[in-house]
Nucleic acid binder design. Structure first.
Lengths: 364, 364
DNA sequence: CTGAAAGCGCTTACAG
DNA sequence: CTGAAAGCGCTTACAG
């Protein structure tokens, strides 16, 4: 069929070996049925309908199956049962960048706790070659938890068409799906109040991007937090600087902020702890003391904030609890075809005061 | 069939609604074929064999399919193509505990980078209700990367029987599968050398458990590190204390160590950064100065170690690179049915000296 | 319990 | 391009 790169025609006599398409299973129900001297149905019953078989026959079949190394093909099984045994996490970002923030590890940890308990696998569903729709169409999962997704994303329609139950986390609640979220606005108010009450007048907000590519996800959470910051700051007009969500980007945004703004802000409200840690790095580099010269407050309450230098004041949200609540909801919808009504859970946030915030320097 | 809990027999007239089994797809190849006035084969060709169709026919079919919200059922498709579009990560621990260490987030980030690039989903494969074998039999994946698995785990045999390509990370290399690992022993030698050269005489090792439940995973990596520590320490006999792998367990093990050992060790070799951070917490609590009274050195080089108080001296290993190398190997084996030979990649570690290590206090 | 069969929704030769 | 068909490996009524 094809020429070798050397130009010499080659007998392609081991083509079958090279490709692994059309690879058939060596041991199937038929193999086991024959070995056990029973019908194929009986083999299936041994796994799925124990009550149809005598205990002895069943255990004999299972024993023979085991000795042959047989287990039902999960794909074939799923074609009839319509169950894959996996839950999907639909995410807006690529896996790599998403896991750069410890938030993600904690969230996945929460989902995983429920998956472990119910014997489910967890499949990460990042955009497939940039397309969430493609991933939503190709994903082999029984249910999906979404994180920070715009409900009008085409992927959501695809999932709905496939009748895959869905629970939204960190999206604007709507009538279509159950959701779990946190009081992001209220948390941001707490952060801004804290800084204002300490006496700061010049405040900067380290913000996620609020003008993302169309259809690439919701920016509901950032918008909520921004609104909360503004409300809490009252008469103070903040400087807003936008950045990617990783600590490194947070650091370089902070560097810009601190070198180009005169007079310098005396407090930074960071939209995530990852950004706050980046800001901390930038201050260390520039020799600016925290909280002596500038106060920094984060958002999320990831564990590392307790161990940074100085320990970070932040707004804590129940990350794992969000995941667990969403999974409970999802498992529930997985059992009842048509849930009676949509359920919207709203969890609270709280301020944790540590050592990265203080009154502004006396000169101010 | 069943009685309600109240004891009243109930007409189960909406049972069909309650169960979601036997749910059929509403739009299939047949629907699209009819709508487009072509054969079912033509619809399939539009997706899989464009060269069989004229450009116009193909785009007409795809357009109609889109307007019907059709996409090929991934499960049915997989039954013939034998491809799922997902890579599995077989892990020994439950998801929750595994992701408590930032190591895991970085490793998954590396796998995810490759998955994103190749349009693959990533499925986490923790033990299914405690059984890795059950998970190995049920997983719907094209290939598997294992992390810290004993090669004689029954799950490995199941994967092999299913002809699922496999690459081992952090296992003892063997002839059966390709592997990627790091010079754990050499890294541990570096750590022990460092501490010995600073003049420490009383050294403790904060170790992972070395007697795990049978078949629950390999303890190859811990064994390698322990051997390295011993070699580097030379004539010094260490105190060894075993603990679970999370920071919290590391902290309580350290608390025990510091209160029950007299005289106290002046240096701690922690088998992971997570454990080292736990040890740091314990020292802070007990009012023991680091590195003034006790030196601590970690292992892994996760980013947070640069931001702790004090910044942690540690042995850095290329975590993401390990994942990426394993994925490259796996993708390669996914193309060639029988790889010509097994490939064993061996990556190096290096010492990063920061501020958590110093000479022992003068009294010693 | 058996045995023959239909069905899950695709893909893929095959003859035309 | 079509159309009829086989096949992927199961599960699940069905009559006996």
């Amino acid at each position: 069929m094809t020429l070798s790169t050397s130009g010499t025609p080659i007998e392609d006599d081991n083509a079958g070996q090279r490709r692994r398409t059309r690879q058939r299973r060596d041991v199937t129900v038929a193999t086991v049925a024959k070995a056990a001297g029973v019908s194929r149905a009986a083999v299936s019953f041994a796994y799925n309908s124990p009550e149809q078989l005598s205990t002895e026959t069943r255990s004999r079949i299972l024993r023979i199956a085991d000795s042959l190394g047989y287990a039902p093909d999960p794909v074939a099984r799923m074609l009839t049962t319509r169950r894959s045994g996996a839950i999907g996490l639909l995410m807006v970002e690529p896996i790599e960048t998403a896991f750069a923030d410890q938030f993600m590890a904690l969230f996945v940890g929460g989902l995983g706790q429920m998956c472990d308990r119910h014997g489910l696998a967890l499949t990460l569903l990042p955009p497939l070659l940039g397309s969430s729709l493609a991933m939503a169409q190709a994903a082999i999962v029984d249910g999906v938890v979404t994180l920070g997704i715009a409900p009008d994303l085409p992927a959501m329609g695809a999932l709905e068409q496939r009748h895959i139950p869905l629970v939204l986390v960190d999206s604007a609640p709507n009538d279509h799906w159950s959701s779990v979220q946190v009081d992001d606005e209220g948390g941001a108010v707490l952060a801004a109040d804290h800084v204002r009450e300490l006496g700061h007048q010049r405040v900067a907000i380290l913000s996620f991007e609020t003008h993302p590519a169309i259809g690439s996800g919701t920016y509901y959470v950032p918008a909520q937090r921004l609104a909360g910051y503004r409300r809490g700051l009252g008469a103070i007009t903040p400087i807003i600087i936008e950045t990617h969500s990783d600590a490194e980007s947070g650091a370089s945004a902070t560097r810009r902020l601190l070198t180009e703004t005169h007079p310098r802000p005396t407090a930074i409200l960071a939209m995530s702890d990852a950004l706050a840690i980046g800001a901390l790095h930038a201050c260390h580099e520039l020799g600016i003391r925290v909280p002596g010269e500038i106060s920094i407050i984060g958002f999320d309450g990831i564990p590392v904030t307790a161990a940074t230098n100085p320990p970070l004041t932040t707004i804590e949200q129940p990350i794992a609890e969000k995941a667990i609540t969403a999974m409970q909801r999802l498992l529930h919808e997985l059992q009842d075809a048509v849930p009676l009504r949509r359920d919207h859970t709203f969890l609270t946030t709280r301020l944790i005061v540590r050592q990265s915030t203080a009154p502004p320097p006396p000169s101010d």
